[in-house]
Amino acid sequence: MKNGTFYVEKASIVHNVDPLSKLLFVFVSVAITYMLSNQPVVSGVLAFTLLLLLLGKVLHNVLPIIGLSLVLIFSIIVVQGFFHPDRSTVWFTIGSVPIYKEGFSYALLLTLRVLNMVCAFGVLILTTKPDDLVQSLIRKGMSPKIGYVLLSVLQILPQMIAATGKITDAQRARGMETEGGLSTRVKSFIPLLTPVVLNSINDTRDRSIALEIRGFNSTSERTFLHETNHFKYGFVIKILLAASLAAVIAWRIFI
């Protein structure tokens, strides 16, 4: 995880697609799975997303990301499976607990959708450098200032995390306990968090100054150090994605 993001540096056809097309893909792919309640179609979309991950040589990298959503998926299966409001067709029983088909079918659909969502975002975040995405958005008219904010979080966060060790040491050195009963732990929250808050807010002054003296508020037409990377197939992909979305919308309306 370079720079704290999921980006995986590889040479692949998916890496070469322009970031905005991938962003559009995430949107279209998620939208389709939520517009259609048809399990085979949703499975198909998921399979396509997984294929992209495979082409991007990042299929195994998506596993830890899915792992983070496991609690949610587990909860979907248990809650929807057992307690879905629509409980008519008994699928089978475990002991005396009846399992209903409707619930599990719905749980399966939701799980497929969540998996697709996570994997579709995976396609974007595993194969796109954050700076490339932000640069593309800025060239498309997003404010460079918002671009600055997005990228600076990625740099500042590791710095702030590094500071927490020092703060914990400094407060323990003054006799503050971080282990013990709930009240001891609650009491130590403020002494631990406040120095980071004060520190980082104090740093914003220096950083604002650093930006001001580097012409951050300049009104001149800005230039870019790096030329636009020559991403491929951007136009075709965007057309195809838009067409698929339109088709699905049409299907929903007319069929």
Binding site: N3, S152, R214, T223, F224, L225
Partner: peptide, 19 residues
């Protein structure tokens, strides 16, 4: 600035702003 990932790009920050 915190928004650039290499020294080279960091130095460029001001120049990009000034166009």
């Amino acid at each position: 600035t915190g928004a650039k990932f290499t020294v080279y790009d960091e130095i460029a920050f001001g120049l990009e702003n000034l166009g």
